[in-house]
Design a protein around this nucleic acid. Sequence first.
DNA 1: AGGCGACGATCTACACTGTATAGCGGGTCC
DNA 2: GGACCCGCTATACAGTGTAGATCGTCGCCT
Lengths: 215, 215
Amino acid sequence: MMIYGVEMTDRRREILTEALALADERGLAAVSMRAVAQRVGVTPMALYPHVGSKQDMLDGLVELLVTDLPMPAAGLPWPERFAGFARAARQSARRHPTAFALLFDRPAVTADSLLVIDFLYQLLLDAGVPRTEIARAERMLSTFVLGFAVSEQGGRFAGGRLPAPARRAQLPADELPAHHGLAAELDQPLDLDAEFEADVADLIALIEHVLAAPR
Amino acid sequence: MMIYGVEMTDRRREILTEALALADERGLAAVSMRAVAQRVGVTPMALYPHVGSKQDMLDGLVELLVTDLPMPAAGLPWPERFAGFARAARQSARRHPTAFALLFDRPAVTADSLLVIDFLYQLLLDAGVPRTEIARAERMLSTFVLGFAVSEQGGRFAGGRLPAPARRAQLPADELPAHHGLAAELDQPLDLDAEFEADVADLIALIEHVLAAPR
DNA sequence: AGGCGACGATCTACACTGTATAGCGGGTCC
DNA sequence: GGACCCGCTATACAGTGTAGATCGTCGCCT
């Protein structure tokens, strides 16, 4: 199978698999050509004919991630299809906490990512989103789903080293009026599982009542 | 002014400003301690007492970005406040195409970012979003706004080197049914300015009709 | 006035990065 | 048997972040 002009040989797949495992175990920063080569049992320079360059190797990791994404059955109602996709993406981010962020900077144009996009297009068609709005809606929804997953793994939602009360104490109360007015609610512990489900429900409402609505 | 235990001296600000300018001119990858030091007119090791480490220096860049974000006036109606914030973020991403992505992996906990978050909290309160949902709504909306800006600058929306028709020709028509059914619409040129405005309008509708709605 | 400590900057060195280049060994075909 | 190719190795180079030691120049205190 030719993907984007790069043949997926057994050796190439082995290298990419080993690189992904290394990223999962020690973080993306630990993925050096030398470290990957050692895992494969080979000299660093031996990787190059198979993966091109380090950049291309990381592109290959994205390919792996997308290929492994389990897509919901096409027969389900569209809201369940959307929720299933969103949960699968988040799950994949949990399995690959640092590598998943690669999905966010590179354009997703491998053959497998086209399949995912087509899945979303179909879902939006079934939801009654106007044909002219579908490409935009897909970008909007995948931006959020990927963004949430990346933010969660990258720690953007964690709020730093300080707990909430200490955080808002950095500035005088009159500069953070909403923070202080919402103190009781902001001090609740963060449950990202529940938050994600609520977000997905809201996005389904967005599709149904905003994107699919007549203007 | 103490920010997070790091005093913002003139020297530190000069270093960060120079690093940001370098990132804007030659990309984030060109921001090495040696290159920044040369711009400042100093030896690489002289940076360390001021910025701590390269990681900390990049955190400092985030600080600069957030501080320079022009926030809309508090007296405006909340939809205009939200749109103003979103446009300011996107504008900042255009000014700092590679550095802006830093906002997405680090938790935003500097004093100035608290001001931005407070601005969003207040806006959501004014929109009638229930108090218990406001922190979640803020994370949801900023995830999208930052995600859009980062994706646009990082090229995720650009769709790779192939034009749309060639892209969908990578796979047989029956594997990409929605792509082929939507061919006419998908071949329209991409106008990200218009798309962003449409997304912002939809998010305002989401706030008003979904997040602020009784359940 | 003289010493003294702190502070900012410098120089050198180390381990590590991606990868260009050249060479080597074995297998397949004429 | 010889020519080729293919996968791999070995070496080398420029560049990275930063630890450690050194040095000069201030302000301060006795």
